[in-house]
Write a protein that binds this DNA or RNA. Structure first.
Lengths: 110, 110
DNA sequence: GATATTAATCGTAATATTGCAATGAACAAA
DNA sequence: TTTGTTCATTGCAATATTACGATTAATATC
């Protein structure tokens, strides 16, 4: 069927997987890293930086924007994309407890 | 088309996205959370805990095992799955710097 | 041996994702 | 107004992912 059964999972589990999905493609990782390292950024920059076609980059940017991890302002003919710091912090608040959880009990079986 | 161009990205970017992919499905998040909270765990347990069919759970477990995030020992008729603590720590060492990076410069555009 | 239990594997269907050529929309410069 | 630039959108093809019924493999129990 190929359709994730989101309704059987908790909101927290769905949130974690949704944010993880944002990072589940190296192009989006590269885009975010570049946005962190440069102050201002247009899409054309990213096309040169990353070796993918312009529509592909645009699509990845759209996904990141829909998730709220980046925001973009129109600047004349170009568009200025940057990290949405507030939402990035919120994302970390959701992912960090999951990544940093500890094992409560330890059985002998493994 | 439909094929991620891994070769144009750095090893680090590919590693981050590969681990993120492990968490990009709520069922795998739920499986990992359950393994953290219980000392020993068999596949049947997970089928009851999560509302997916046994082959589906088995497939998700296989992916997590291939990534090294969990390990499983055969215990008679059942299988004992648990978190691979060493590899989990290694995964955190790769993901944390990415999640915790700070913006170096801040332009006025956004 | 026969039967039951547990989990992996196979096969298949449905949906999602990735990538890009072609096109379109918006705006700046000539 | 025409031309060029920049990025979004559309449409499509190829691959990946998700899910599960049916089956198989392995082991325990009778």
């Amino acid at each position: 069927m190929g359709l994730t059964k989101s309704e059987i999972f908790t909101d927290q589990q769905n949130e974690i997987s949704t944010f993880a999905k944002a990072f589940a493609h190296p192009a989006r990782v590269a885009i975010l890293q570049h946005l962190f390292n440069i102050d201002t950024c247009v899409c054309g920059d990213l096309v040169n930086e990353i070796g993918l076609a312009q529509p592909t980059i645009s699509q990845h940017l759209k996904e990141l924007k829909q998730l709220g991890l980046i925001k973009g302002n129109i600047e004349g003919t170009s568009v200025c994309y940057c990290i949405n710091k507030e939402n990035w912090a919120q994302m970390k608040d959701i992912l960090s407890p999951f990544l940093n959880q500890d094992i409560i009990k330890k059985a002998t079986c493994c």
